[in-house]
Every structure is written in structure tokens, then in C-alpha cells.
Simulated scan of single mutants.
Amino acid sequence: MKIVFMGTPDFSVPILKKVNEIYGVDLVVTQPDKIVGRKKVITSSPVKNMAKELGIEVFQPIKIRKDYQRILDVKPDIIITAAYGQIIPKVLLDTPKYKAINVHGSLLPKHRGGAPIQRSLMNGDEYTGITIMYMGVKMDAGDIIEQDKLKIESSDTKDSLFEKLSIMGTDLLMKTLPRIFAEEVKPLSQNQDEVTYSNNILREEEKINWGNNVEVIDRHIRAFYNEPGMFTSIDDRTLKVYQGKIHQCNNFEKNHEKDANGKIIKLFDDGIGVKVNNGVYIITEVQLVGKKRMNVKDFLNGAGRNLITVGKVFK
């Protein structure tokens, strides 16, 4: 069996490892190396790093729609993709005997696009999941082979969902591949009336809107956890916000109903209490630009001592 695997982020790594363990992978296709951070370090994708560890050849086309001959040279029986990051040309979809399939991090037809996991959190979805699908010319529009559902917990962040869905995707793919190779699957067309899109995250979405409801702010911060993180500003300084929680005391919230959204109304032992549209949000982990990321207790004892005071307003 000749297999080409296409993927880029951490989400794809367990899937690659398991496919290689069970079937063997002949070629890994991933995004080009990127220059990261202030020190401009050339950084490989997690999938490339794993492929090198496993001794698999890596192909990194800048634009796969123009540069795909190396994949055709393999003469793959199947192409397996998982969060690759580029639209795959039709010639590649038509070549393999068992076609090209995708491990997608949503319950299609909901959340087609590049940020399904983040946007399922942002939207307050009760469930997310994995879809194994045949790939088509249109993004995430192919026929569904198999699905599995996962409940989103109130404590889930982008990272925790990525990890859970990566494991779920690996397990579901391993159950599905034997049926694909035996030509026993009965794919279903997607219901066009239920299609929604989850486009990549925009820079302007990373800024906290303190005028939102506390539940919306909490979901957004969990959806942006670790990378890229959300941000706000105070005294013309940018503050990254990585974690927080909803304040649960209703009486306390009622006493501050007339305060401006974004106003710091109390400094707690473990966080900064901020007035929002319908309550109070407590910031618990932050980073001033140019400083270390830290919990709020340490921050208020250091760089934030004079910057964060009751009565100031985040913008």
C-alpha cells in the first residue's frame, strides 16, 4: 500500500504516527518552514519533525496547486490529510485508487474551513467531533465516510480540544481505513442546508471586547488559549490575556452594573476582576508585551504593581 500523508500542526502528529505504524507512509507533505518570533528562528512544522524522526521523506511545496509532481511520482494508493493547510488540486484527488480522504475536526457540514475547533468553542457549541470524509474540489465539501461526536466541557480550551480530537481522529481513522480498503464504505453527501463556515482567525478577533457578555468573553479566551492568545490595553500598554474565569457572585455583579465595561473593579487573590456587559470576568494569566507570561498573583507583585489598579479601564 502506497500512502501519502499530508498534515502540518500538532493535531496531525498522532494520526501520522499511527498510520505509519500500521500501514507505513511513503511520503509526508507539510507546509514550508516558517520564520518565528523576534529572533526569526526558522521553524519546521510538528509533522515535519515527526516525519524526520520516523525516517519518512518530507515534501514541502510552497504552492501545492503548482508543485505536486513529487506526490504523483509515489503513485499513491491513498492520500490521507489532516489539517494540511492548502487546497489540494483535483489531479491529486483523482489519482489514488482509494481516493484522498481527510480527518476534519468538526461534525461536517458544520464548521467547514481552517479553524473549526476554535470557532466551535467561540460559538458555544455543545458538541464537536471528527469527520472522516472523501476530499472534493470545494473545501471540506466531500462525502462523509464516518463521524464521531465529542461533548465540549466548560473547562475545555483550544489546546485540550485539539488533543482530544487528535486522539479521536486517530482512532476513528484506524477503524475506517480497513473498510475503505475493502471497499465497504457507503459515504453520505453533506446536507447543504446545514453548512456553516469557520474561517481562519483574524487579528482583529484577538482583541477582547469588554462589552460582550461574560460567557462570550470566556469562550473566546478559551478558544484562543496559548496561541495566539487574546489582548487588551491599559495605559497604552498591550496586555496579553491567556486564562480567566467567570465570577460567580451575583450580588457583587449587581453592585457594579453602572460601571463602564472594561473597568477594573476588584483585585482578587488570584485575578483581576473586570466589569463586562452582564457580569464580572476574572483574568488569571497574563503577559505584558516584552515580559514573561505569568499568573496574575506574580504579575501584580511585579510588572503590574503600578499598572493594574482598581478604577482603571481596559480598552
Rank of each mutant, 00 (worst) to 15 (best):
I3D: 00
D140N: 03
Q60T: 15
F314R: 08
G142T: 08
M168S: 01
K52Q: 12
R119A: 04
K297D: 10
V41S: 06
M139P: 06
L165H: 00
I78C: 03
N199F: 13
V313E: 09
N278K: 09
N301K: 15
L300Y: 12
G105Q: 05
P178W: 05
R222P: 07
D259A: 11
Y127M: 08
I264S: 01
Q60D: 12
I272D: 01
S189C: 02
L239M: 14
R293N: 10
Y68Q: 07
R237L: 15
K17L: 13
I79W: 06
E53Y: 03
G169K: 00
I79E: 05
D125L: 06
K186E: 15
K99H: 04
N199L: 13
H256Q: 06
S233D: 08
Q147T: 09
R222S: 09
D235G: 10
I80M: 02
D259N: 11
N255M: 13
K266A: 13
A100F: 00
T232A: 09
K275L: 05
L239D: 10
N261C: 03
I308G: 03
Y84F: 14
Q118T: 14
I22L: 12
I180T: 04
I64L: 12
M135F: 10
H104I: 06
I152A: 06
K312S: 09
D298H: 14
